[in-house]
Amino acid sequence: KVVAGGRIVRLRNDKPFLERMVTGVKSSHSDQSTSGNHAKAVLESITSNLEAGIDMVDHQELCLAKMGGRLSEIALALNQVRSPQSSDEDRSKSQIRFEVSKEQIRELSQSTYDNTALFSKGSAKPITIAVPTHGEWEGISVDRANIDQPGLMTVDQGKVYGPGPGYTLDTGSVKRAFAEWRSLCINNRMQWGLLMDRLHGANRSLRNVLDGKSWSIPETPDGQALGPLRRPHRNN
């Protein structure tokens, strides 16, 4: 999928580059190469697309924050089960709280933004945003957070007490899940920072155009081995 016209949409290879990757609609300007209005429209689309990407990352961050809260509840339930002062009834109640938190994490992992999944189980294609950089088009990728990781999956399939199915969790399992969750949070904020940086640049270019300065739309890229858009932040 790509972000075009401020919406996350499926890539339509039958459309011209600007329409399918930036504006989402056919240009109404006859002389696209020199029209100041056309340059303004393209820059406005770029800023809208970046803002949509930032909104998606913000929604993902909110879901991750809620997941972190549920992981804290799971850690608390495990500590209560392991406490010598806990009775069997207390431990059974802790298992119930664990199941509730686990189900809430599952529900959060199904969250979407603009009909697009915020999380994945395994590798998934990123959402692409086309941005101009030094006279060329580049692709900024917004990743779905991959929750198919050992610690998180162990928690999802585990338990803290009782004869029911599943692996009985220990503190190491929960710590590993927390470490994986923190890594997802860090990646989320790094993507947010990258998108904000590009948004500031697009806004500066748009202000220049509004002030009467010229801005040239980069030429349409041709197909390359890594795809039609350069992705320097994914090639390092």
Rank of each mutant, 00 (worst) to 15 (best):
G24T: 06
S101V: 03
R91L: 01
I129E: 03
E180G: 04
V9N: 03
I96N: 07
L18W: 01
T154I: 15
V100S: 14
S45D: 06
L206M: 12
S111H: 02
I147G: 02
S111K: 02
G135F: 13
N49F: 02
S87G: 03
L71Q: 03
A41M: 13
H29N: 14
W181C: 00
G162L: 11
N13S: 06
L226I: 13
K121F: 15
E51P: 00
L169M: 08
C63L: 10
P84Y: 09
D211Q: 11
I140D: 00
G164F: 01
I8K: 04
P150D: 13
T154P: 09
P84C: 09
V100E: 15
D222F: 05
Y161G: 00
P16L: 01
C185W: 03
S173R: 04
W137T: 07
S216P: 00
S123K: 15
G212Q: 04
N203Q: 10
T34D: 15
V131L: 02
H29M: 10
Q191D: 08
Y161H: 15
E61W: 05
M153V: 13
D90V: 01
D14M: 04
I8A: 06
F98A: 01
M21N: 14
C185M: 12
D211Y: 04
L229C: 01
I105W: 04
Q32C: 08
G201L: 11
T34K: 11
S214F: 03
P232E: 12
G122P: 08
I8T: 04
K15S: 04
A225Y: 13
D170N: 15
T133S: 13
A52Y: 00
R12A: 08
Q32S: 12
A41W: 10
L169Q: 03
H200E: 14
S173G: 07
K121Q: 14
E51C: 00
Q95G: 01
G212P: 00
L11T: 07
D156S: 13
E99I: 03
S27N: 06
C185E: 12
Q110E: 11
K15I: 05
D143W: 07
R182H: 10
L71H: 03
V160N: 03
E219V: 02
C185I: 05
E89V: 11
Y113W: 15
R10I: 02
S72A: 10
T116V: 08
T23W: 00
R7T: 07
T220G: 05
T47P: 06
Q80P: 00
